[in-house]
Every structure is written in structure tokens, then in C-alpha cells.
């Protein structure tokens, strides 16, 4: 019996259902959009990026209460230890930046190190960081679409890094803008499909209504002697 119930598959299905509404993609897109604005304007705009990052989960939850949970039900997924997650994100980000710094040093040598190199290769760094985030999401949900997001983000990042933008910060701004557009459009499409595929269910049956045995799934009935 145990081998027919795959707990990992059940957990991944729960994750996929939870992410089906596309709201996470929309939120990521909004964060990227505001980040592009922060790069384009001034450093004080970084607070615009912090706002959705901090309050985004609460906003998503409020939208889900209105649109998602009444349609497919509510689930609270098991979360990893927040400290371990934060440490993992931090270490991964540091590793990505360190690897890029080493690669750039090997390619261009110490004499040509300049801030412009950082800006020029920032799209690739952001793409690599998103690769990690999407890989994590794929491992949790089993949904290969997150690999596609990751590969697109990285590929576009490398392409933007190889193309010389003047000024160099424009490349970062345009990269973040393009990615945000992709994520927001994808998220909105998924949300529209989700609403179409999951109409609001009828009002729940009264708990006192008699059960109709003809509607029961064979093998899953209640044995009164059990």
C-alpha cells in the first residue's frame, strides 16, 4: 500500500496547485519592474523594490483569499527552516557573484577591473540568481516550466551582457524591464486560465445531508463496521 502512495508526488502536486494561479509570477514581475526603475532613476528608489519584497506575500495572500482559495481550497505548504533558507539564498548569491568575479578577472585581468564591468555583467548575475530560485521552485513543485523561466532569464542575461549598452546601466534596466514584462504577462495569462478552469464551486452541501452512495468512488467507501 505504502509504495502506491508517493508522498513526494503528493507534495509536489500540492505545490503545483498552490502556484497555479500565476500570482507568484506576477509578483516577481512587479519586483523586477520596480528594480529596473530603481536602476534607471536613483539609489533612493531601492525602497520601491523593498516594498513589494516585504509586503508582496501579504498582498498575494489577500488576492488568494478572494480568488484562489474559494475555487481550489486553501493549503499551507510546509516551509523549510527560514534561517536555513535565508542562509542558502545568501550563500548562493555570494557564490554566483564570486564565480562571476573570478571569471571576469580571468577574462579581463586585474588591470581592467572597473565598476562598468559589474554593470555590464549584472544581467548575467541576475539571471544566474534567478536560475537558482527557479531550480528550487522546480524541485518543490516538479513543474518543469520553472526551468524554462530560469533558462530564459539566464540566456537573456548573457545576451544583454555581451551586447555593449551605452550607458552601461541601460543594459541592466532594459534586462530587468524585459524580464518583468515576461513574468507579468505569463502570470496574468496563468491567472486568466486559472479563473476559467476553476469556476467558483456551488455553496457547500449541508453537513447534515444524507450521503449519496452512488456518487462514492469504488474502494473509497465507508465501511460501517470499520
Amino acid at each position: 500500500m505504502d509504495e502506491k502512495i508517493d508522498l513526494r508526488d503528493i507534495e509536489q502536486r500540492a505545490w503545483r496547485v498552490y502556484m497555479e494561479d500565476g500570482l507568484v509570477e506576477i509578483m516577481i514581475g512587479v519586483v523586477l519592474f520596480l528594480a529596473s526603475g530603481a536602476f534607471h532613476t536613483s539609489s533612493t528608489s531601492v525602497f520601491l523594490v523593498l516594498f513589494p519584497t516585504i509586503f508582496g506575500p501579504n498582498i498575494i495572500e489577500a488576492i488568494r483569499k478572494r480568488y484562489t482559495y474559494p475555487r481550489i481550497g486553501y493549503v499551507k505548504l510546509q516551509s523549510d527552516d527560514p534561517k536555513k533558507t535565508a542562509m542558502g539564498i545568501f550563500l548562493y548569491t555570494v557564490a554566483v557573484i564570486a564565480i562571476m568575479a573570478i571569471v571576469l578577472y580571468l577574462l579581463f585581468g586585474s588591470g581592467t577591473w572597473a565598476p562598468y564591468l559589474l554593470y555590464q555583467w549584472l544581467p548575467t548575475i541576475v539571471g544566474a540568481i534567478l536560475l537558482g530560485a527557479m531550480t528550487y521552485t522546480k524541485s518543490k513543485s516538479g513543474d518543469a516550466r520553472y526551468y524554462a523561466y530560469a533558462l530564459v532569464a539566464l540566456a537573456i542575461g548573457v545576451a544583454f551582457s555581451l551586447h555593449r549598452f551605452e550607458p552601461v546601466k541601460r543594459g541592466v534596466t532594459l534586462y530587468l524591464l524585459l524580464l518583468s514584462g515576461i513574468m507579468i504577462v505569463t502570470g496574468l495569462s496563468r491567472f486568466a486560465v486559472f479563473l476559467r478552469n476553476h469556476p467558483l464551486p456551488p455553496e457547500p452541501e449541508s453537513s447534515h445531508e444524507a450521503r449519496d452512495p452512488s456518487k462514492d468512488i469504488p474502494g473509497l467507501g465507508v465501511d460501517p463496521d470499520d
Binding site: A14, Y74, Q78
Partner: peptide, 20 residues
Amino acid sequence: VVESADFLFIMRQTGMTFGN
């Protein structure tokens, strides 16, 4: 595999009827 879920979610995931 989850922290909690509501009745509707479990019903949809398991394929059971409400009464079941």
C-alpha cells in the same frame, strides 16, 4: 506533506465526495 489544508482542497486532491 502540508501544514494544513481545508476541506475543499483535500476533497479535490483526493477525488472524494463531500460525504465520503
